[in-house]
Design a protein around this nucleic acid. Structure first.
Lengths: 111, 111
DNA sequence: ATAATAGTTGAACAATTATTCAACTGAGGT
DNA sequence: ACCTCAGTTGAATAATTGTTCAACTATTAT
């Protein structure tokens, strides 16, 4: 019993030591962990949108939206497409939607 | 073209207005968005552990770990099991692992 | 060229939050 | 009963972070 417990601790310590993707994982989820950004992502699931339209949908200033889009861009969750004066943003890949769905599954069941 | 754009905005606004799970979703991901908590979750994927052992694995104080476990408990991501003096924590359900896997998929591919 | 519109950026401010410290609760062993 | 060990809790501190404001770039229209 005591033996297994120490074994588990050792195994966990090795795992945590080796796995440097844990920080990347936390960083990724931190990006999803703000309602403004999740709103933007869910909006872009419906259609690509320019910054002004996103601001209109969320009832926020362009500036605030632009700041959040920068964070989403850096996390490679959205990608910009400049068309004339406007910059249209869309989801970077289908992973984004699947991560959102994954979270919704937990919410619907658990609670 | 302009017509479709306005249509998209309306559709997004309706979606955001109806969907009050967006805040729950952001709250859920906020919990994952801290490396201490993701370390705890990944540790518990390997084995149920008592608070002292988690603290040992993460090289943190019991107090700090306990504070984070409280947050994980409230989010229904871990569940406590009191055995005598010790409290063993384990993952609340299999959703937790699948959310972690979902994030790792994005990291591995994207970059 | 000039004006107007779309978007980005940096500094500042307010709010949130993770960790530490100390005090406390409760179970087990002597 | 007493002491010890495991865990929780609340207040305080330090760090992070989201939004605002103002200034700036770049593209389109007159």
């Amino acid at each position: 019993m005591e033996y297994n417990r120490l074994n588990a601790v050792k195994e966990v310590q090795n795992k945590l030591y080796d796995d440097n993707t844990i920080y990347d994982l936390a960083e990724l989820y931190k990006v999803f962990g703000d309602s403004t950004r999740t709103k933007i992502l869910i909006s872009l699931e419906i259609s690509p949108l320019c910054v002004d339209d996103i601001a209109l949908c969320l009832n926020m200033t362009k500036s605030a939206v632009s700041h959040q889009l920068r964070i989403l861009r850096q996390a490679k969750l959205v990608k910009p497409d400049k068309r004339g004066k406007e910059v249209y943003y869309s989801l970077d890949d289908e992973h984004v939607s699947s991560i959102i769905e994954c979270g919704l599954d937990h919410i619907k069941e658990g609670k």
